[in-house]
Amino acid sequence: MLSVAGVDVFIQSSQILRGVSLEVGAREVVCLVGRNGSGKTTTLRTVMGYLSPRAGAVEFRGRPIHGRRTHEIARLGLGWAPEDCGIFSDLTVAENIEIATWTRPRGRAAAERVAQAYEVFPALRRYAARRGPEMSGGERKMLSIARALALDPEMLLLDEPFEGLSPAIIPAVSAGIAAITGLGRAILIAESNIHHVPDYTTRLYVIERGEIIFGGRPDDAWRDPGVSRIIGGRSR
């Protein structure tokens, strides 16, 4: 579904990503784990077209997407839930979700897509008339993911979905993401805390200083001494 191959990314004159390669197959849940500043967000932003790679290629559903505009990439079927949620504060919760059904009209009815977003995060239904600033961090996170889902994407990119959330709300967000995997969408999650990596993760990549140092099954990551030192696996 998504293939990132040998991508080098520079921000001004600093090289942030060095030959990053990763694959996400259909219906897969892939986690990209790394410490803060290791290049996780940069990788996702490169996929979304905010940054263009100096070398390498990004392909989505067999088509090269590097160098394309962000909104075109979104319309191809990549839903993006950024780390800071990116909720539009002048719009209500309902409008935030509905807008994605207008920008990417599909075969499926808009009402069905909106209903699905609410099914995944039932808590949002209660806040439908609220605006962005009237929501908690966890609710904003759920809305951000629900909105990306309403785009009816083939794949979702979730940037640190558990970052900064109270432990009380993490299960609700986690359950929502689990429900999305049940809908047959591929998911790529960037995560800095290895303990937040969901059990249903099919593949794990570890990124350190802009390089992928591990790629494989989550169980194998624990056995890799270099990986466990970096991501703090020993505490488990």
């Binding site: 909104h71 950024p82 719009l91 807008i99 207008w102 920008t103």
Partner: peptide, 19 residues
């Protein structure tokens, strides 16, 4: 509504497929 999202945050509006 798309205009409002653009005023709010053009970079994020793009991720919803808004030109």
């Amino acid at each position: 509504l798309c205009l409002k999202t653009i005023r709010d945050n053009p970079a994020k509006a793009e991720t919803l497929g808004i030109g």
